[in-house]
Design a protein around this nucleic acid. Structure first.
Length: 686
DNA sequence: GCGATCAGTT
DNA sequence: CACAACTGATCGC
């Protein structure tokens, strides 16, 4: 639960995810995602009054978050005051003090956070340095390395501070099975049940919160059955989700809710009230998504646990595990890291102690071996930085580690272009900090071969998790699939499978051995298939022997372990979640994009948004021509693989053109700052 | 009556 | 053992 108070030290004029108290004075608001604990004060009378008085104050968020927020009548009053910003589109915002007229320029870039639909991280760049507010996030290991806008010239940007989701920032949450492992486990449990008869149904006991949608869509896709939910109007403009949901109770997969749902379930009644179909009673199991976690040395990671005759828990996490957090932070390597979450039972100091060693001042000049994990990064001397001027306390002369995870020909990203188009209304300083590539970093970007070695024994657990049947048979399918997926603005582009296995290895579940109506699933990573019936005490022992942690064990029958299930390592490159497709479900291919909107009017580099009410900057969409609306449906063409062991090509990367190289070399030679940004259509609103 | 806060539940 | 919401009690405007 976020305890972030809304303001960042570097940019106190903006407020993020908090809208009460001090935040009532903010010049601009940002919402990372639509969960209640990040919306405190967002519909309070005090803020409502502020909006009425301060007409230049806007709320910025992803298009999906805007859509979800405005679906609720309670937040409808925001309608004219929300500006949605496309993912990975640097956008300039003027922060104007309405009393004094004082103005501050800031550039924000939204990065996909993988937490729930529409969830993003905010990367701010301005006179006080580059800061990253992560909101809540779930990113697999290595994903930071694949985020283009965290980089510049082939290395990680110089980040002053990170405001970090520390929900599971404790070694006891060392590992949480990947999204793909969890999904596969659930898929197979569901399959083993609903294939028995049309009267076998599952109830997904999900909380009332966004974040389960990718589960629903994958289940729906897999079985050709829509998932029954109470409400779906919030997805009315997101066909990739909507198509997998229904309010028709006549389906075998339910995610409906009711205050007395648990009680209903005891009586074989679904939350929506039905108990039978065609007068034939239904057989129901419940699956409760819950976070399960495992220690550093835990090998077995069971993603499904039977908790009763017809009840299961399935591993599911909205947040990154400890190892994912530390991987992320050590990769970013900011000067400061501030925890956004202080879980109960711990303190700010304790969390800060964990974060500190991963920050810059703790890094030494020399490459060093880490006790765990692999060395993916090169380190070299940091030569200068525009952005490290402000705080004496943090004016750390120590070197900045370099991050070379992308192959070197991609370090000069062909998609980045000089930010000339905005230079006229862009303060020099800002342009520098935003654009990012500077002479010194160019030097390092040309640095040829980066270190990418792996410690021999660490993370071998991951290998061990690969089922024997999969080993030595890496399916080449995945890359093709990804390619294909990337062409179309499909829903699963945002939460997609990305490893090289398929579900095929999971299809042979033993079916019922009789007696219990519940599915009998195989356990045991050694391959000795064990049929588990409920309340098997030896299995409970088995759990403690494994040193597993992370679930309560009213009755702990292990059902599926990730070793077996290693099928899809699903990545949450949700690119800000799902992109809503407004009004029509029109595909926007790359070609269409170019035809419809060949060149951005504002800038091909940074979108300029203003809160001073200039009509051109952004906004409510009513002036935006249909073509542009189409573009908001634009594909996430850069979905990518997320294997923990390979760093795939940067999305949309091409070999640099000679002219670009020439430009860079010239700048390098003259010592001028080189400011690069990705060419991108500016579509700020829907 | 509404909202904020807290404790308890799921 | 967590999360994110919900419920109900209490207090204050």
């Amino acid at each position: 639960m976020s305890s972030f108070q809304g303001q960042m030290a570097e940019y106190p004029n903006i407020s993020i995810d908090r809208f009460d108290r001090e935040n009532l004075r903010a010049r601009a608001y940002f919402l990372s995602h639509c969960h209640k604990d990040h919306m405190k004060g967002l519909r309070a009378p005090a803020l409502k009054r502020r909006l009425e008085c301060s007409l230049k104050v806007y709320l910025y968020c992803s298009p999906v978050t805007k859509e979800l927020l405005l679906t609720s009548p309670k937040y409808r009053f925001w309608e004219k005051r929300i500006i949605s910003i496309e993912i990975e589109t640097p956008t300039q915002i003027s922060l104007v003090d309405e009393a004094s007229g004082e103005k501050e320029e800031i550039v924000v870039t939204l990065l996909p956070a993988g937490h729930c639909p529409g969830s993003v991280m905010f990367l701010f760049q301005g006179d006080n340095g580059t800061v990253l507010y992560t909101g809540d996030f779930r990113l697999a290991k290595g994903e930071a390395a694949r985020m283009e806008f965290l980089h510049c010239g082939g290395r990680v940007k110089d980040i002053q501070s990170v405001y970090l989701d520390t929900t599971f920032c404790d070694p006891k949450f060392y590992q949480i099975p990947s999204r793909g492992e969890c999904l596969s486990g659930i898929l197979e449990l569901v399959r083993s049940w609903i294939t028995r008869s049309p009267y076998h149904v599952v109830w997904l006991n999900c909380k009332a919160a966004y974040g389960y949608e990718y589960l629903f869509t994958h289940l729906s896709e897999e079985f050709g059955l829509q998932v029954h939910v109470d409400k779906l109007d919030m997805f009315r403009n997101m066909p990739d989700i909507l198509n997998h949901l229904t309010t028709d109770r006549n389906t075998q997969i339910h995610a409906c809710r009711h205050p007395k749902a648990e009680e209903y379930f005891q009586w074989n009644k679904l939350p929506c009230g039905i108990t039978s179909k065609n007068r034939i009673p239904l057989h129901t199991i419940s699956i409760k998504p819950s976070t399960m976690w495992f220690g550093e040395r835990t090998r077995k990671t069971n993603v499904i646990v039977r908790t009763g005759e017809s009840s299961y828990r399935a591993c599911f996490s909205f947040h990154s595990s400890y190892s994912e957090i530390t991987d992320f932070l050590s990769y970013i390597c900011p000067v400061n890291a501030h925890p956004n979450v202080i879980p109960v039972g711990t303190t700010v100091d304790k969390v800060t102690e964990i974060l500190k060693p991963l920050c810059r001042s703790s890094q030494s000049t020399e490459p060093k071996y880490k006790p765990l994990g692999k060395l993916k990064r090169a380190r070299t001397t940091h030569l200068d930085s525009e952005e490290e001027e402000e705080d004496d306390l943090f004016d750390d002369p120590l070197p900045v580690p370099l991050r070379h995870k992308v192959p070197n020909q991609q370090t000069l990203h062909p998609k980045v272009f000089p930010m000339t188009a905005v230079s006229q209304n862009q303060p020099e300083k800002l342009g520098q900090s935003t654009g990012c590539i500077k002479a010194e970093s160019m030097k390092t970007s040309l640095w040829a071969n980066f270190i990418d070695c792996e410690e021999s024994n660490s993370e071998s657990e991951e290998e061990l998790q690969i089922p024997a049947s999969f080993q030595g048979d890496p399916s080449p399918l995945t890359h093709h699939q990804q390619k294909a997926d990337a062409e179309v603005p499909q829903w699963d582009v945002f939460f997609k499978r990305n490893d090289n296995t398929t579900d095929d290895g999971l299809e042979n579940f033993p079916s019922s051995t009789g007696g219990s109506q519940s599915p009998q699933l195989s356990s045991d990573s050694d391959g000795e298939s064990t049929h588990i019936s409920s309340q098997n005490s030896s299995q409970s022992t088995h759990i403690s022997e494994q040193g597993s942690q992370g679930w309560d064990s009213q009755s702990d029958t292990i059902l599926l372990s990730s070793q077996e299930r290693n099928s899809g390592d699903m990545t949450s490159l949700n690119k800000g979640g799902y992109r809503p497709k407004i009004k029509e479900n029109l595909p926007a291919s790359q070609t269409e994009k170019n035809i419809l909107f060949p060149k951005n009017t504002y800038s091909e580099d940074v979108n300029v948004v203003s809160n001073v009410g200039e009509p051109t900057t952004v906004n409510s969409g009513k002036h935006i021509p249909q073509e542009r609306k189409l573009l908001t449906l634009s594909t996430n063409a850069d979905s990518q693989s997320s294997s923990d062991f390979e760093i795939p090509a940067t999305p949309e990367a091409e070999l640099p053109q000679q002219e670009h190289l020439q430009y860079l070399y010239e700048k390098l030679a003259t010592g001028n700052d080189i400011v690069l940004e990705k060419r991108k259509s500016s579509l700020l609103d829907i």
